[in-house]
Design a binder for these strands. Sequence first.
DNA 1: CTGAACTGGGAAAGCGCATTCCCACTGCAT
DNA 2: ATGCAGTGGGAATGCGCTTTCCCAGTTCAG
Lengths: 366, 366
Amino acid sequence: MVASTLTEVARLAGVSPATASRVLNGSARKPGQDIAERVRKAADSLGYIPNAQAQGLAKSSSGLIGLIVHDIADPYFAAIARGVQEAAREQGRMVLLATTAGAPADEKEAVAAFAARRADSIVIAGSRSARPEDQDGNAELAAELDRYCRNGGQVAVVGHAVVGASVSEGYHVLTVPNEELAATLASELAAMRDDHFVIIGGPAGLFTSDDRVRGFQRGLAAAGLPAAEVIRTGFNRSGGFEAGVALAARIKAAHAAEDSGTSQTSRRICIFAVNDVMAIGAAAALRSEGLRIPRDATIAGFDDIETLRDFRPALSTVHLPLEEIGRQATRRAAGTADDDAAPSPVTGHVTLRRSTDLKLQASASD
Amino acid sequence: MVASTLTEVARLAGVSPATASRVLNGSARKPGQDIAERVRKAADSLGYIPNAQAQGLAKSSSGLIGLIVHDIADPYFAAIARGVQEAAREQGRMVLLATTAGAPADEKEAVAAFAARRADSIVIAGSRSARPEDQDGNAELAAELDRYCRNGGQVAVVGHAVVGASVSEGYHVLTVPNEELAATLASELAAMRDDHFVIIGGPAGLFTSDDRVRGFQRGLAAAGLPAAEVIRTGFNRSGGFEAGVALAARIKAAHAAEDSGTSQTSRRICIFAVNDVMAIGAAAALRSEGLRIPRDATIAGFDDIETLRDFRPALSTVHLPLEEIGRQATRRAAGTADDDAAPSPVTGHVTLRRSTDLKLQASASD
DNA sequence: CTGAACTGGGAAAGCGCATTCCCACTGCAT
DNA sequence: ATGCAGTGGGAATGCGCTTTCCCAGTTCAG
């Protein structure tokens, strides 16, 4: 990568590099009209492109913003990434992407890489983990983030603070009311039915998952219902699918018992998967086992990812403004958000659709 | 962003910066054991992180790879991005993301920004356009790319070469056999039916779209069928939806005519949408108009995006190894692909699913 | 008409690192 | 003992740019 330099432009224009710099790269001092024009023409004819690395070195700021996601092809992260990208463009920055599959150790590497590139700010989008096997990784990640912040970096993390991170300057947490929303979802679902609730959760220790599970249970309790059974599985589609297979077997067994009169209660199952991709996986599993939603079981997810728009049966879920979350996080980390003192919180809302429609279930069950 | 520097580390270790550099950042010369250890310990205790900008300046290479997509939240691009990310990691580089909505002018900006950052290589994933309104933008983009390549940059573009780009050193095109595959799809679809074919294409001038349309027509011709009507619309879900609404009206009219005996022919419609998201949009439109697939119309898409996995009815499409395409493009641009001379071409395959199932259509039509 | 307060341009010192020389030293053959 | 290649470390230079500092030329108040 060679290219014409500022010095060359200056020479061609017959001015000093200092002047050329001033006219080409927005300085406080504005050189005279004639000179400016001459420089600009010289730059043009040489096809001059400022070397951002050198600029960064000199100004010690890079115009880069680092984004950490589990998987960029996951609709949840893709939506957030879109928001981040948008906000970055507003700020005239570029986004550096790192995918980590949620492993704190990898996230630490990513933060270090961002720090090496002197990224102005970092947005961490993946769910935080408190699992024992992630303990060391978390500690390292926290240390790395701490160092980054001490050096003047800005960090915004979506959802929960990184485990063990000290609340230093420049560390922002974009809280997502996972628990409250899950509770609301539970009470809305519980209000009109006496279903047997089952939760498909991620591995214990994943904050996002745990919060949603806890919230859902709380909502059930508030409705006077017993706590739901929780199936722990992978925090992704295949995790949901596996759980779905298991549940399908159970449902079919119950049907059989019902038919033969063995069973006394014939309550149906309402499944809550802690995120949409898991819900989709579970729904796919039920379908592949010949079961129908909402006839044989109802199901709800969380996030309201864009994919849901064309998923059938229409999935009940909790809508989260993912793109806005990405934007907010990015703005927060840039100090652009004037409301950093009293940040406008993320709000979502329960969205009931066909997959939990009681009437359909009832009529179909006759 | 301040941080401890190599000089500080060197001083603490009691060696020269040169030596410190040699031990910390893989040089050809390896300092002695004892000294190396001392330096490493000093670096550790200071939490030293090399300044990649300075390194880049000194070595004139950045370890960055630029990725240009239309929209990172589109499953098609998200999948490619995943592949790019993966390959980048293999190369020990980071990926810089730019989204452009397909506008050549924006793409030019992105290339310039990548060039400014001295990205080692650039991957362009979006469809190329030859629309009249994009002419100027294309020219600028081509010029920018050309300059970038002349300066030693590597460019890989997926699908078609950028309009007007001169075949300079470092310019790679990852050809996707859109036309051939579309032709194959057409002949497979045509083989067993006498449907009336309709193509939902993107705006005229979008290469990807045009190629697929052309290929499909060729396939029909080869099967002895007349050319299909082409509906031009947006190259995205909503474009597909609009076209779907129009087609639904037509189908319903045909049904009505059929019922009243007005019509002599009762051929059904087989829709080919030039990409999956358009197909999904069209399918959604049909459904919202009360029509069923494949009963009232059959439909096929292109790309086999991951979303399709859980879309019902299962959509016939042409499978493209999107992730692999991203990887390949990235490797090609890195010169890692030893097969750059004779690049292993991208291959896809027709995947017929329920949405074009004749038997279902026939039985349902009785 | 003189001195002060500006104005606008250039010289030069880094920013943090890699790398080319250069030099002192060792070990070995002559 | 002398010379020579080989080894391992440091001094210095430069990557391309920003920014302070300095200086000559102006303008205006007194």
